[in-house]
């Protein structure tokens, strides 16, 4: 078995606020292996975004041990690509320049970065919009730009916080296929937070179900569906069974999250 690329050992997060401490994550322990695709589903406010920021090193953990690529996380991690819940684009930069920000800040060779950015734009179905500004794009298109930006520097680890939340069902399925292809071709390690159970099952090697806040792990499911998966897999009984089991957690807790 491949070693843990992301390892959490009793990781806890308590936010210190003006109104006192807010417990966001109960002690979490799990490993994500190299090249593994892991999704996290859970009710709103259970600490999914918090978990992602901890792994990215953008928030300090309160207790426990958290390491990435074998090193303890003690600050922002550079070898990851991040997609946040919102698109977070710069209003004064065009689509292309927003994606190239990644290369500018990292001082990557610009000519090569430009070429790669254009290829990513094409992959994301944004051709023709290279020189448009974020406000000239739909919400879903903006989110696709932020995905391109997260992929530009070809990071070994991809951290995504509901990247497809703003997309319509059809574009979403297309992006799911694209993401599977990218992951399959590059063997990146992916941590995906999503609200969609079918999306989680379709894409993942493992699905991590979180409980109500303060978040803890309610269950972990191995998804043994054969790879590569086509959209047809969604209509198989195995798929339906997995989705139903996972959905059961939310009904049991009385909070179905869409």
């Amino acid at each position: 078995m491949a070693p843990g690329l992301i390892t959490l050992d009793k990781v806890t997060k308590i936010y210190q606020t003006k109104d006192g401490p807010v417990e966001s994550l109960r002690p979490l322990s799990f490993d994500i292996r190299e090249g593994e695709f892991v999704s996290v589903v859970g009710p709103s406010g259970c600490g999914k975004s918090t978990l992602l920021k901890l792994v990215a090193g953008l928030l300090p953990i309160t207790a426990g041990q958290l390491s990435l690529l074998g090193r303890r996380i003690d600050g922002p991690q550079k070898n990851v690509g991040i997609v946040f819940q919102g698109a977070v684009l710069l209003a004064w930069r065009t689509v292309l320049d927003n994606i190239l920000l990644q290369a500018e800040i990292r001082h990557l060779p610009m000519a090569a970065a430009r070429e790669r950015a254009l290829a990513l734009i094409k992959m994301a179905g944004l051709s023709g919009f290279e020189h448009k500004y974020p406000w000239q794009l739909s919400g879903g298109m903006q989110q696709r730009v932020s995905i391109c930006r997260a992929l530009l520097h070809d990071p070994p680890v991809l951290l995504m916080d509901e990247p497809f939340g703003a997309l319509d069902a059809m574009t979403r399925e297309k992006m799911n296929l694209e993401l599977q292809r990218i992951w399959y071709g590059s063997k990146k390690t992916v941590l995906l937070i999503t609200h969609s159970i079918p999306e989680a099952v379709f894409l993942s090697d493992r699905v991590l179900v979180m409980s109500e806040r303060p978040g803890s792990i309610a269950a972990i499911y191995d998804i043994d569906l054969p790879r590569p998966r086509s959209l047809d897999v969604m209509s198989t009984p195995e798929f339906a069974h997995l989705a139903k089991t996972i959905r059961g957690h939310f009904f049991a807790q009385g909070s179905l999250d869409h």
Binding site: A56, G57, I82, F84, V88, Q102, E104, I105
Partner: peptide, 21 residues
């Protein structure tokens, strides 16, 4: 936007880059 600052930090942004870009 705090998320934008976080993104730039994960890109290894220097203080100057953060300020001017």
């Amino acid at each position: 936007e705090h998320d934008m600052v976080d993104l730039a930090r994960s890109m290894g942004s220097s203080r100057w880059q953060m300020f001017f870009k």
